[in-house]
């Protein structure tokens, strides 16, 4: 009887632990803040999450571009989203461009510098995070978006 009790409580504990661990999702965050900007460049501090340092830096860089494209950055010269606020619709509309931009790492051609400002921090579930200062060439980025008809040129 005692053995059965222990077994039952172990199963309940396991199920409880399993349910809790399943409910922990990584919510996408936009932990990107404006640092400085001058003459067509913009520097942002972003937090990236990944399995190792390299992946975490890539995530931080992608976050930076996502915020500039679809959210806009208060305090900077790019307060308004560069492309539009409807991220899903815009990514679907220009699927080819964004695939090339993120998967083929085209975005790296607009990164002027990417400097980690913190050590790699370990989190539960094997995830690691890092803070990176990313400086991007905003003028070249805007020109590229204009050339590929993602955004309209200045004027009508």
């Amino acid at each position: 009887m005692k053995k059965l009790k222990i077994l039952c409580s172990s199963i309940i504990l396991f199920l409880l632990f399993f349910t809790i661990s399943c409910s922990i999702n990584i919510i996408p965050t936009a932990e990107v803040n404006y640092v400085s900007g001058k003459e067509g460049t913009i520097t942002m501090r972003a937090i990236g999450i990944g399995t190792n340092q390299e992946n975490a830096i890539i995530d931080a860089e992608e976050n930076v571009f996502n915020v500039i494209f679809f959210r806009g950055l208060p305090e900077s010269e790019q307060k308004i989203a560069l492309i539009g606020t409807n991220e899903t619709e815009e990514k679907e509309k220009h699927k080819e461009y964004f695939e090339n931009f993120y998967k083929n790492k085209k975005y790296r051609t607009f990164v002027m510098s990417s400097i980690p400002t913190s050590d790699l921090t370990k989190h539960k579930g094997g995830k690691k995070s890092i803070t990176v200062d990313v400086k991007i060439n905003l003028v070249a980025l805007r020109k590229d978006l204009e050339q590929h008809n993602i955004i309209r040129k200045f004027g009508f």
Partner: peptide
């Protein structure tokens, strides 16, 4: 210019 462009759009 960014605000102007949103008005143009």
């Amino acid at each position: 210019l960014n605000v102007m462009q949103t008005k143009f759009t």
